[in-house]
Simulated scan of single mutants.
Amino acid sequence: MLILSGLISTPLLSQNDAADTVYSVTDTLPDDYNLFSKDEVLDISLSFDIKYYKRKRSDEEYLDAVLTYYTGENDSITRNIKLRSRGIMRREYCDFPPLLLNFKAKDSVGKEFNKINKLKMVTICKKGQEDYLLREYLVYKIYNILTDYSFKVRLLRINYINTGDANKRDRQFAFAIEPVDLLSKRLNSFEVPLRTLHRNIIKPDMFDRMAIFNYMIGNVDWAVGNQHNVVVLQSGQSDRPDLGICIPYDFDYSGIVDTDYAVPGEGVDIKSVRERAYLGLCREKQDFEKALKEFSDNKDAIYGVIRDFPYLKEKSKTDMIKYLDGFYSQFDKRNSIVNNLLFDCRRYGK
């Protein structure tokens, strides 16, 4: 079995998001405040050549941009930054590809963007698809309910200013994802360098939580082996420092988000992303029951994340809750949920 202890701490950016080090951030700031310390929507403006950005959609070429965010009713802070597109499928498919923002070291001091070097931002893929973005944002928030070992997100309301088209403006939602270096520091851990990993080197309770969560939301677009939509961390303060910590991200292919471009993954016997398949490892029944208890205990809080969110259409809220009902209906007297996990893990998890 591969042991993780002894690996060198090497922070990495996933999804081809490695960037030059010209805009590196110093590490001398207090940790008590950053973009992800609050939940309310943050209003910002981004001014850059959007016309050129959409045409080139390069994940290598950085464009000059101006970011303005508002610290009060009449106060704002403006920063000159660099940005580029990121991702794989969404960078090719979306009319407006996701963004990677790159801050200068001196601009990463204080306020909202404290200690942030590079920031991944999820944008609305195509016009009329705001609900997809808000649904995915809520999926991150639901996982936050279950564990601190999860990516924090912050909802943004962006005023885009297109300098390539007579400063034409457009206002849209987006959300920012906690950078891996901030996540690692928050959890007193470091990212395991990208390599082929076996699922057995992940802490069993964390692997099971992530696998059941992905089953709950109808997501089969993940894998620990090649760290596909999964970040693996290691913590020397863990009760098992030789085992890794897995944290999922990118949920646009899940059934609960149900984007128009999502298709089932290869090797999984489902015809639609709205169907569920459990890709976790097989466990004893009592182990599954223990892992499932936190999902049962947090059911009301999970539903509350959706019901209490003011920006999603009621129709979409109803659809998300109905989809979760399909998961929780398996918590019955026949223990259907455990039997279904056991059936799937023998086919896929082994």
Rank of each mutant, 00 (worst) to 15 (best):
L119S: 05
I212S: 09
D269G: 09
L312P: 10
Y69G: 11
F96Y: 04
T71H: 07
G255S: 01
R195T: 01
V224T: 15
D27R: 04
Y132M: 05
E40C: 02
I247Q: 12
S316I: 03
L67C: 06
K168I: 12
T78A: 03
T68V: 13
S189F: 14
F103R: 05
V109Q: 12
I142H: 03
V232N: 13
S45K: 01
I270K: 13
V122E: 02
Q227Y: 12
I145T: 02
P179G: 13
Y140R: 03
P11D: 03
D221S: 08
L324C: 02
E275P: 08
T163M: 13
Y311C: 05
E73L: 07
Y249G: 12
H198P: 00
S272Y: 02
Y137N: 02
C246Q: 15
P30Q: 01
T68C: 00
T196C: 07
Y23L: 06
I88S: 15
G255E: 04
N144H: 00
N339G: 03
D242R: 05
S235V: 14
Y132G: 00
V180E: 15
P11N: 00
N219P: 11
D181H: 12
E284V: 06
S189P: 01
Y149E: 10
V109R: 08
D170A: 11
E61V: 09
I50R: 03
P98I: 03
D32L: 02
A291T: 15
T71N: 07
K126F: 07
E266N: 09
L12I: 13
K315N: 05
D27F: 08
N219V: 11
L99T: 10
R276E: 09
L281T: 13
F309Q: 09
K290W: 14
K313M: 01
N16C: 07
Y53Q: 04
L342S: 09
D332C: 05
Y303W: 14
K350A: 09
K111R: 10
V263W: 09
V338G: 05
S272T: 06
S85M: 01
K54E: 15
N114K: 08
R55V: 08
N159L: 11
S254C: 01
S37G: 00
Y253E: 03
S85R: 06
R195V: 04
R195M: 05
T28N: 04
L243W: 11
P241K: 04
K106N: 14
R79C: 02
N167I: 04
R283K: 14
Q172N: 13
K126Q: 11
L292Q: 08
L292W: 02
L134C: 00
A176H: 04
P98V: 02
K333S: 12
L156Q: 02
C125G: 08
K126C: 04
D344W: 05
R157T: 13
Y278G: 03
Y328D: 03
G265P: 03
R307F: 00
D27T: 05
D17E: 09
Y53S: 09
